[in-house]
């Protein structure tokens, strides 16, 4: 299958390793990856911060960049939710009528489990790993246990369970700046829960949340690393 990768601007700049991991993984599974070069940003930050007119321009740009692709994959649950759930809202709020259906964007674990029908992707990762279900993956997309099914099939991987795992890490986009004290209070509790599970690595399907959690873990010199799920699934132990 020919799969278009929407890497997400955040990953493009800060976490290119996640994009490379998605490419490696999909190619290992026998698929061809395309990277439409006109892609930039889905407009999530503008939309959720209240800059709706600006978000409309980005939603239109997204549709143009991915026109003609019928399988689009992204390693960001929040960007997938923005396109699938919010782009129609954004365009309607901008006064557009007859808004076309949003481009068919799949979050990576949805694509692997639902579209490709695989849970064992042939990965090996001999470490103790905790999975953090991000709000957008668990609630907005309803990812359910797909990420965990993928993780359970990874050779050598030991799962650690985080208490109160479904509670938000406190990132929330510009919330982390506008309400920095509340945001830090939330991530402090999240990090306390994570450390109680004593993992080597915390993984998720949103690098934005992982940057927040990882930023606090790093400041505490906790020794716990954060890693996108794709980078675990791409690892073949070689």
């Amino acid at each position: 299958m020919r799969v278009a990768l929407f890497v997400a601007c955040f990953n493009d700049a800060l976490f290119p390793g996640t994009g490379r991991a998605v490419v490696r993984l999909l190619e290992r599974l026998g698929h061809e990856v395309a990277f439409p070069s006109a892609q930039t940003c889905c407009g999530q930050m503008h939309w959720t911060t209240g800059y709706h007119a600006e978000a409309a321009g980005l939603a239109r740009g997204f549709a143009a960049a991915f026109a003609g692709h019928d399988a689009i994959v992204t390693p960001s649950a929040s960007c997938a939710a923005t396109v699938r759930r919010d782009h129609a809202r954004i365009l309607r709020a901008a006064g557009e009528r007859d808004v076309p259906p949003a481009p068919p964007v799949h979050e990576l674990t949805e694509f692997l489990v639902d579209v490709l029908g695989v849970t064992d992707v042939g990965a090996s990762f001999p470490h103790r790993v905790a999975y953090h279900p991000t709000c957008h993956s668990a609630r907005a997309l309803g990812a359910g246990d797909r990420p965990l099914r993928l993780l359970r099939a990874v050779r050598g991987l030991e799962l650690a369970e985080i208490p109160a795992a479904d509670e938000c890490c406190g990132f929330g986009g510009t919330f982390a700046l506008k309400n920095a004290d509340v945001s830090v209070a939330l991530v402090a509790d999240k990090v306390r829960h994570i450390r109680s599970a004593a993992p080597d690595v915390v993984c998720a399907v949103d690098n934005s949340c992982l940057a927040h959690i990882g930023g606090a873990l790093s400041r505490q010199r906790s020794g716990v690393r954060v890693l996108h799920l794709a980078e675990i699934l791409a690892g073949d132990g070689a």
Binding site: P16, G17, F35, V187, S218
Partner: peptide, 16 residues
């Protein structure tokens, strides 16, 4: 942000 949280350093080479 950095009052309480580190930020990862962006790698020299972007994905694109």
């Amino acid at each position: 942000w950095t009052d309480a949280r580190d930020l990862p350093v962006p790698p020299a080479r972007s994905f694109r």
